[in-house]
């Protein structure tokens, strides 16, 4: 708890809130692009870039490491596309290959740099499971600023994102550049991943993208509220996970964030207001009841709706 009281810890919490909100929103985009696994591939693919960026520059400044991570993740994304388009291998298989190869490469490089670079590199280990508590003030600024950029890109283009995700062909017909939207989507996805990996780690970063979005889906039938819900759940998981991880020395942040977002997910799955198991069961029961008691009323409804 002593860490929590330090002013630095408050800054860390704030940046985790921004990160959680941003990744929750981007997670919604990934969810409707049906690319949840892609975020996992990209975050794993970021690791070698972090290590190489450090090996080249010799400094452990976040913007440098983020740049390395972004380049590495984009190469990963490109490789997935390349494997899919130039062979008969399916996208999920390609992502599985890229994910494991890049992660293996990252760990290998990390070992080499650790051997040759001395104790200087210890902080890099944090990129595997995440170490929010080790962030310094400038890291927090970098993360929050980039996180706010991501949030505003989603918010300003809300209507365009909705159209692009629901019906890209129609969007193109209206003159919206689908190529631009795709690039923008890859851009914000990579951005939110690379700003998150120091705090959450490359292995579990995707949880902060996938779980809040899928949880929010249980609460609403509106894309706007799904975005807001995912932002709240993402932000909440980020903050709760970070608070718990700062309670013990050297506790990794990623796992605690995943567990707290999983708690949100279980609650949503059971009690979600629109698709939750409990409400669905209750609706089924009342439907059966009404069918037994007022069959004529029911029939009228079917006829009015033009049949099923």
């Amino acid at each position: 708890m002593t860490l929590l009281l330090s002013p630095n810890a408050w800054w860390v919490l704030l940046s985790m809130l921004v990160l959680g909100v941003a990744s929750g929103m981007i997670g919604c985009l990934a969810y409707w692009k049906r690319q949840s696994l892609m975020s996992d591939a990209l975050s794993h693919a970021a690791l070698p870039g972090v290590v190489i960026a450090f090996a080249i520059t010799g400094v452990k400044i976040l913007p440098v490491l983020i740049l390395g991570a972004a380049i590495s993740a984009l190469i990963g994304a490109f490789l997935v596309q390349w494997v899919v388009s130039s062979s008969r291998i399916k996208e999920d298989t390609a992502m599985g290959i890229v994910l494991s190869v890049f992660f293996g490469l990252g760990i290998m490089l990390l070992t080499i740099v650790n051997r040759t670079g001395g104790g200087n590199v210890s902080g890099l280990d944090g990129f595997i499971f995440g170490q929010a508590a080790s962030m310094v003030r400038t890291d927090v600024y970098t993360m929050s600023a980039l996180g706010l950029v991501v949030i505003s890109i989603v918010w300003l283009g809300f209507k365009e994102w909705k159209l692009f995700l629901f019906d890209p062909a129609f969007a193109k017909g209206l003159g919206l550049s689908v190529r631009l939207m795709n690039s923008l989507y890859s851009g914000v996805l990579v951005l939110v991943i690379v700003i998150g990996i120091q705090a959450v780690g490359v292995i579990l970063m995707s949880a902060l993208l996938i779980i809040p979005a899928v949880s929010a889906r249980y609460w609403t039938h509106s894309f706007k509220w799904m975005l807001i819900g995912a932002a709240v759940i993402g932000g909440g998981s980020g903050v709760i996970g970070t608070v718990i991880s700062t309670m013990g020395k050297g506790w990794p942040t990623g796992p605690f964030i995943v567990v707290s977002s999983a708690a949100f997910f279980v609650v949503s799955l059971l009690f979600g207001a629109q698709k939750g198991l409990v409400i669905v069961r209750l609706q089924q029961r009342s439907r059966i009841k009404s069918e037994v008691s007022v069959p004529a009323e029911r029939e009228k409804m079917v006829v009015k709706e033009g049949g099923y």
């Binding site: 209206l174 039938h221 509106s222």
Partner: peptide, 14 residues
Amino acid sequence: FPTDALDVVMMGLY
């Protein structure tokens, strides 16, 4: 996709 009929029709006006 989480949206309603009116919202889809509005897309034609974007």
